[in-house]
Design a protein around this nucleic acid. Structure first.
Lengths: 215, 215, 215, 215
DNA sequence: GATGAATGAGATTTCATTCAT
DNA sequence: CATGAATGAAATCTCATTCAT
């Protein structure tokens, strides 16, 4: 039992190592135009070995999506696991952190998008589909719980409000990465980015409690 | 000359017809796993004929991206070309319209994203690259102008604020489509969507003038 | 009768016009990478019209081959239709002329080569096949006759010697174009070309009568 | 390192194996109308495998051209690496050998011709372009050196004469293959061929030393 | 377990030929 | 007659996956 557990653990570590290394090539060349060969080369393993750890290409994508979700979950943990209300400073920090995560792990989210929007283009194997669902639900629950705690208990629609707040801020986070990445170099400068982040953060101040992001 | 002009016009119309029909199949099956054959079949033309109108596959993608930008530009025209401040009702309407556009023309934006993020994955021919840049600049100018008019003239950083406001709302629009599409069916209901939109719109109320979306 | 004859004549003229214009594009771009479209464009006629005059692509190639053979035949006429022995000066002139013809009409000969060597790659329609055979036989007969007249009548192998002489000089002519064209710019200069031609011509001097090119 | 060296060697051998087998189909069907599929079938490999060894179709052609140049180079080595003057017997032998090489490897030279005359029709990858240039220069140097040695040292234009002699004999060799192959069956018999070769060889006898092929 | 050469199905692309106008 | 858009068969090329070593 001990042995098989260790094997299992080692296998999982190796998978993550592969994914971590694979991420580089994805970030570098974009989601399209990356082949299994490219990944293998980037990981410094043979093609065949990749198939020992992943059933097929979609499985690799799914793995990436899971890792990305985890990163996002960790970010939320750090940002929301505090007593204080999420003020301007904290929001700016949250957005900046997410931007930075996206800079390094953007392909995770892209895979995530393509997975759902691709309507079957990526067929998650059951294992990954479950993992992904669990992580997402976990993140969602955390966010909702956070906002919920900051809404008066006597409001019947507390949960709904908290869910909405969650999706709005998620949307803003994701949208900012998209817009700022698309426009970068072509349309605006680093200064622009800073301004946009600050303005986005300020949106959430001075709003009535029930729509704010907290207390 | 009259004849050649007509020919030119007809050719342009046919190109748009192809793109319009191609859009369907993209929306239906997702951006990945659509082949030239699929498009040809959807358009009810032969593969060879597509190549009469488009140099190659990337050229078709580029055409889609341009059309998508145009749709977005038209949306902005309609939403911003008004005297009144962009109030809650108008914002809700704007977001809803964008959501609806995205439902039909989402693939346009996906192409746009992949084009920029893919770092060369889609090689825009010069013609399309220019068109795309022009449309984007036009949309940007409209937005900036709109917000700028609503900021006190004596503020030195008027333009910067207007630009930031533009990017924030663009980000929100795009982000909402992403989040809401990803989560749909899996995570939330149509009711959720409505709530999220309303909440997003309300964010922009009761904020100090210099960061509001208007007057 | 007069009318149909005129029509026939006009059609023939048009065909030659097409071939003459087609030659340009062949010389310019090389035998491969020339399409029917390219030819049509070069001739300033529509693709469909080309097919009014030529059954198919091979037919155009065949036409080119015939024209090339004619050019060569005319060259021989001019060079051999004289009383005098073919001396050094005349040989140099002959080679130079052939080189010049080749510079402009080289693709004719290329077609000729590919026709035979291609072993069916170009399927001559019967009409062209006959024309081509006739022209070639005519050229051959002229050459043989020329050399034959310069060999003592009492030699039993007069005709064989004359035929051999013909082929040798034809080979030299053709080979020079090949070698000099392949090497041009890469391997040697215009001066080289002149020297090679002169040396080639000189080979045929001072050889015993029965192997010489004349008298 | 030993392993990678072996791999490299094996890869090279496989490439040559492919080219050797490809040659057959080229000789059989003519340079045109040979497809990648045909080659793959002839080599008894899959299409995909060919693309493991050659970047594209042109790369295969280029490989053939290189091998052909090598064959020619070897022929020259054998023919010229001797003390004795290149007499009639040796010349006949040289021509006959070249004819035989051409019968088997003719497509090599055809590729060579089309490469240069096609003005870019075949795009040599850098590697092949260099190899080809090197081999050609090597062959040229050998020939020139051979003839040079047979020209009195006090002649200032020794090298020029030697170069000219080289090109003339190369032209004759190549031209003979062209003429004799085109005319074969249609125009002349095997006997003709023999006579032509002998006559061609005899051309080089009894000529003044400075234009002869050797002392 | 690890490898990567080989595969072959399927993608993109080309172009000679046709035919409705 | 003249046209050239449309065709589709066939070509080139790609790449996820397998399997013998």
């Amino acid at each position: 039992m001990g042995i098989s557990e260790r094997k299992e653990r080692e296998k999982k570590q190796r998978k993550e190592m592969i994914l971590e290394a694979a991420r580089n090539i994805f970030q570098e060349r974009g989601f399209l135009n990356v082949t299994i060969s490219d990944i293998a080369e980037s990981v410094e393993l043979s093609i065949g070995t990749l198939y020992l750890y992943f059933k097929n290409k979609d499985d690799i994508y799914a793995g990436l999506a899971c890792l990305g979700s985890q990163k996002f979950d960790e970010l939320l943990d750090e940002a929301l696991h505090r007593k204080k209300k999420l003020g301007h400073k904290e929001l700016v920090s949250l957005i900046e952190k997410f931007m930075r995560i996206y800079a390094d792990y953007g392909c995770y989210f892209d895979v995530l998008m393509l997975n759902f929007k691709g309507k079957g283009s990526i067929n998650l194997s059951d294992g990954y589909a479950n993992t992904l669902r669990e992580i997402t639900q976990s993140s969602l629950a955390k966010s909702v719980s956070y906002f919920s705690r900051r809404i008066p208990k006597n409001r019947a629609d507390r949960t709904e409000i908290a869910r909405s707040a969650t999706f709005v801020i998620w949307a803003l986070l994701l949208g900012l990465t998209q817009v700022l990445n698309v426009g970068r170099t072509e349309i605006f400068s680093e200064d622009d980015v800073q301004r946009v982040i600050k303005k986005a953060a300020r949106l959430f101040e001075n709003v009535p409690p029930e729509i704010s992001l907290g207390e």
